[in-house]
Design a protein around this nucleic acid. Sequence first.
DNA 1: CCGCAGGCCCCAC
DNA 2: GTGGGGCCTGCG
Length: 287
Amino acid sequence: MPILKANDFSLAHTLECGQVFRAAKVGDWYYVNARDRLFKIRQKGDDLTYDGDADDAFLRRYFSLDHDLNEILAKIGLDEHVSKAIEQYRGLRILRQDPWECLISFLCSRAQNIPNIKKTVESICETFGKKVRLDDYVSYAFPAPGQLKDMEGLKAAKTGFRAESIAAANSLQTEESLAALAKPPYPDAKKKLMELPGVADKVADCVLLFSLGFLQAFPVDTWIKQAMCECYFGGQKVSPDKIREFAQIYFGEYAGYAQQYLFCQIRLAKGGEPEPEEEENGQETGT
DNA sequence: CCGCAGGCCCCAC
DNA sequence: GTGGGGCCTGCG
């Protein structure tokens, strides 16, 4: 099996920090669906061993191994809060996901917790996607733009009130129009994304950050909002707009990296999701 | 059975 | 320009 070298990279933190919903841990492998690809990958030190529908070039790009993590972490490690998160999660990288899959996934994320987002996305794939297999692992490809127009299917996939916005994205966007959104400047790209129904600041920033290369995007969800108010606003309640504005100035061009590291930290501190943990080093940070 | 989850939208003030 | 309720659905 091919081996890819990667320093300053943590496969586990990158896949489990909540930026992607279609990576499943099986033993010491992660099986990852990305659009119509299915591959498996595992890490031992600096070695990434993989198999399935992937190659070095794709993986370097998908896992953003070209990001200069030293520079990025140096620029965002401005205080004890981020520094602590960096210590804990060093090697976490912002993925370069497929924009279409990312957009639909975060449309599904509205008013749901992570386990339910995963279920909804899986359900969409099972309803509309092609079956794919690697070893004994069977799953479904992510449907392409244009394939999500059937409202009955969307409802059957338990997308609920999100169905309309998914169908709208399906009819308004194409592979090309989404790729074109990667063009700076950030405010222009964000404005265009937010023309889609169901896409406001949070969803737009997730798509911009996790798939379109805008590392300054700073998605403000309820968890980050809480943490930012506690850490940077003396516990007073501040609006998401103000938080984002502050973060992008304070952290600068890599604000999105700060967001992901802080997000991981909060989920750990607050108990986060009851993810089925495989690791056996249960370190209780009792409060 | 009620309340809430990684939001958005619409409607009052 | 802010603030609060409703929304599909699943789970505690």
